[in-house]
Every structure is written in C-alpha cells, then in structure tokens.
C-alpha cells in the first residue's frame, strides 16, 4: 500500500509526520519511507540508518557531434523548449532547458545528436531494523524535479513487494512535482495548520486531490494555534479528519535538533496510533 503525505503550504509538518509515523510504525512491521521532496529533502535528518546502497540518477540530453552534421537546423525546429539552437556553424545544446524528449536526436538525418546521460541527482538507501529509507537529492541548478521523483518511485516500486506499507514524503505545493509524487498513491494524508495560510493552501491541495480522484484525509498540525476554520471546512466538506498534533514549543525544540517526537511526547504517540488505525482500516476495506 502506498501512502503519500502532502500539503499545499510548506512547513506544515509533512516531514515531521512522515518520519515519526514511519519510525513508530516500524516498531511493529516493515515500513518503506521515501523522501520525494527532492529539492529540499529533510526526512534523512531524522532517520538513523546504515547506508546500504547509493546510485546516481541521470537525465538524457543530446550531445552534438559535428563530423556528419549538415547544419540543416531540424533539431532546433523540433525542440519546443529552446534547448537546441543552431548558431552559425554550430549546434548548441542547453542541458538545463532540455526535457529529454529525444525528438532532436531521433529526427536528426545524420544522427549527429546522440543522447547521453547527465547526472541530475543521487538516490540513497538506508536501513535500520524494520525501516527502509530512500531519499533522492536534486543537484543544485537542475530545475526538473519531476524526472528525479519519477525515477525514485520506479526504484521503490521495483525493489519492494507490492503489499509492503510505503510512506512517501511529498514536496509542497500543487504543481507538477506534487502530482508526480501523489498520482500513484492509494491514500493521501494532507497535513495543514489551523491558520489562514494553512486553510487557503489546504483548499488548493484538496482541489488537486479531487482532480486526481484520490482518497485523502486531513491531519492538523500545531493544533491550538490560530482558529477553528480548518476543522469547520473539513466537516462542511465531509473530509475525513484523522488526527491533530498539538501546538507546543517543546515540539518545535525537539524538531529543531532532529529528534523524533513520539519518543518524548505521549500525546504525539496517541495521534500516530489514530493515524495507523485509520490507514489500516482503509487498507482492509480496499484490500490493498
């Protein structure tokens, strides 16, 4: 079963929830946690494990070989991203603009633009007892997070059995990286905070999940701060409200040091149990 933890707004506690839920649940069963926030992956800061595997991830880009090139300019014509340009007697490739569609390469009459790999990130796999943890990190300056997210999902799907519980820490927002990180999940947990920013961005996240036809539930973090409009929104829109993590300075302090919360704050453990009950029930009902 695949569970994605997402939110519209950044900094609402996706990583806190992902790491605490995965570690706590792994005390009972095997859990695979994957950090898909490849631009700013933070889950690894809270997970202690032994690195068992590492691999580079690549995107494919064209490389100009001038020998047979007749400078017909077809490559520039077929590229929708301005990543290939004919400048005088030269063909220039702009790797950061290339989306890797292969059109220029495969449609070149002289085969002068073979595709070559360019490193875009690193995937690492850590293990501790029942917890398998995978993270990918985008190289700074690379802009296309989506491709790395996709490759990371492929790695997880190919290396772990289908029925294992897999938790995915998704990137913030509602645009393409979030879609890629959530579109194959069986259940989405949306983390928000009870503030105007939290509610505004939660509504965007809910619209996104509805558009993807996903099942989702809400978890309120920093409960007690702000107002009660998120709860009201959930009940008015019949959205399952799964758990609330209290607003405590102590939580912010523990988080700041990279410590897991449930080990020191009993209330957090209670809330994690609520979440596990909700997921397990969903899993049984849907035979996942």
């Amino acid at each position: 079963m695949k569970i994605a933890i997402a939110s519209g707004k950044g900094g609402t506690g996706k990583t806190t929830l992902s790491t605490n839920l995965a570690s706590f649940w792994a005390e009972k069963t095997t859990i695979v946690l994957t950090d898909l926030d490849v631009e700013e992956p933070n889950s690894g800061l809270f997970i202690e494990g032994k690195k068992v595997h590492q691999e580079n991830k690549f995107k494919m880009i064209p490389k100009w070989e001038k020998t047979d090139c007749i400078l017909c300019g077809n490559c520039q014509k077929v590229c929708n991203f301005n990543a290939v340009m004919k400048l005088g007697e030269m063909i220039m490739v702009f790797p950061e603009l290339c989306h890797g569609c292969y059109a220029c390469s495969e449609l070149c009459p002289t085969k002068s633009l073979p595709m070559i790999p360019k490193k875009m990130g690193e995937l690492k796999y850590f293990k501790s007892d029942n917890l398998d943890f995978i993270e990918s990190k985008l190289i700074i300056g690379e802009e296309q997070a989506v491709s790395l997210i996709k490759q990371t999902l492929d790695y997880v799907n190919n290396n772990f059995p289908k029925n294992t519980i897999k938790i995915f820490d998704a990137p913030p927002g509602t645009s393409c990286p979030v879609i890629e990180a959530t579109k194959d999940a069986d259940l989405i947990l949306l983390v928000t905070e009870p503030t105007p920013f939290g509610l505004h961005d939660l509504k965007l996240a809910v619209d996104t999940m509805r558009k993807l036809k996903k099942n989702f539930g809400i978890i309120i973090n920093r409960f007690g701060i702000g107002d009660n409009k998120v709860e009201k929104y959930c009940s008015e829109n019949k959205i399952p409200f799964i758990a609330k993590i209290p607003n405590m300075r102590k939580i912010a302090e523990l988080y700041s040091t990279g410590n897991l919360l449930y080990k020191e704050i009993p209330e957090v453990k209670v809330q994690l149990e609520n979440i596990i009950t909700f997921i397990s029930k969903y899993q049984q009902e849907n035979a996942l």
Partner: peptide, 18 residues
Amino acid sequence: PSVSGIHDLKRVYELVKK
C-alpha cells in the same frame, strides 16, 4: 535554527551563489 532549516538554507544559498 533547526536541522531542516540549516540544511535547506545551505542548499538554496548554493543556488543564490550560482
């Protein structure tokens, strides 16, 4: 001042430097 805050600050500053 959190482990995540520092981690992300360093990464985004790398980008600013570029």
